[in-house]
């Protein structure tokens, strides 16, 4: 019952219309390669967006996810190249992401810096320090097949990134909708004073939100590195904007208090299919940025109207 609230039904309808339209326009849309490519590139966005949904629900935002993700591709490739061990590569990645998430959370809660600014600063720091780490792109010299499988492989004919996303998904649907943590996140975002006066340790959950998001960036970053077979400084530049746009399009409120994982997934699929449609229709690539920009404004505008009418 909670899966499809009105907002989500509208998004779902929009998604179906888009698919019908595109399949009439170009039957290529339904080719298995095209669908795989849409799902594969959606998955990395979705994984990070699960965390971003939690953050926005609790009234925070993380702009450093793109920079962190680029950094992760560099670290994972470099560490596996040197050690020859995927496990050590993953340990390095998640250790680093945990640290960045903690720093973001503590700067927000202990130093009381607005998260828009705190994570913008973190973005700059990461963008700069990745060059300190390595000036050049790091190519896959270890050639371990399992590593390539993470991003490029298939399981039961489903791309691995999708499998990983589907593996994580239920955990977040349940977390946000059916556990007390979900309630805590939305009460903190909706009315932090009321949450605190109900005995909730707001800061603890905010830090948790940042840490979860950073760890999910770790997952997506490893997939991206495997897909590209490279670790590269600017590989996920601007990624944070797509994630935030999709989460907002999905119906999560930028002011906090209201978040939906299913909405987020629909939002990402819509943006990615529009992306895909622009390519299939041979429209100039610049529109891949222009169209989502307009859609985002409209989505948030209609959401505001809807809220006014119901409030």
């Amino acid at each position: 019952m909670k899966y499809f609230q009105t907002n989500e039904s509208i998004l779902f309808g929009l998604l179906v219309l888009l698919c019908i339209f595109l399949s009439f326009y170009n039957p290529q849309f339904y080719s298995i390669q095209n669908i795989h490519s849409i799902l594969r590139s959606s998955s990395t966005v979705m994984i990070v967006a699960f965390g971003m949904t939690i953050l926005l629900t609790s009234g925070e935002v993380d702009l450093s996810v793109g920079a962190l993700m680029s950094f992760v591709t560099v670290i994972v490739m470099d560490v596996i190249n040197i050690t020859g061990s995927i496990s050590l590569g993953l340990i390095a990645v998640f250790g680093f992401c945990l640290l960045i998430g903690l720093i973001n959370g503590l700067v927000r809660t202990v130093l009381n810096v607005n998260s828009l600014i705190a994570t913008l600063a973190m973005m700059l720091i990461l963008q700069g320090s990745v060059y300190v780490y390595s000036m050049a792109a790091i190519y896959n010299t270890h050639l371990i097949p399992l590593f390539s499988f993470i991003g490029q492989g298939f399981f039961l004919n489903i791309p691995m990134p999708v499998v990983i996303m589907l593996f994580i998904l239920p955990f977040f649907v349940v977390l946000l909708n059916y556990t007390r943590y979900g309630r805590y996140f939305s009460s903190i975002g909706s009315n932090p004073d009321a949450a605190k006066l109900s005995g909730i340790n707001n800061n603890r959950y905010k830090v948790l939100g940042f840490v979860i998001t950073s760890l999910l960036v770790g997952v997506s970053g490893v997939i991206l590195a495997s897909l590209m077979d490279t670790g590269q400084q600017g590989s996920a530049k601007g990624f944070e904007l797509i994630v935030i746009a999709a989460v907002l399009l999905g119906g999560t409120s930028f002011m906090g208090g209201k978040g939906t994982i299913i909405g987020t997934i629909l939002g990402i699929l819509i943006l990615k299919i529009i992306d895909n449609g622009i390519i299939l229709m041979r429209i100039p690539q610049e529109f891949q940025l222009i169209v989502p920009g307009f859609i985002l404004i409209l989505a948030v505008y209609f959401d505001g109207i809807r809220k006014k009418n119901s409030g």
Partner: peptide, 27 residues
């Protein structure tokens, strides 16, 4: 400082006491 405006009556009432309504991790 009292009500959480994005929540319904039930969710507002149980906010400080969610632990007592939990079966394992699920409310």
């Amino acid at each position: 400082e009292g009500i959480v405006k994005d929540m319904n009556l039930r969710e507002n009432m149980s906010l400080p006491s969610l632990k007592i309504f939990e079966d394992l991790f699920i409310i």
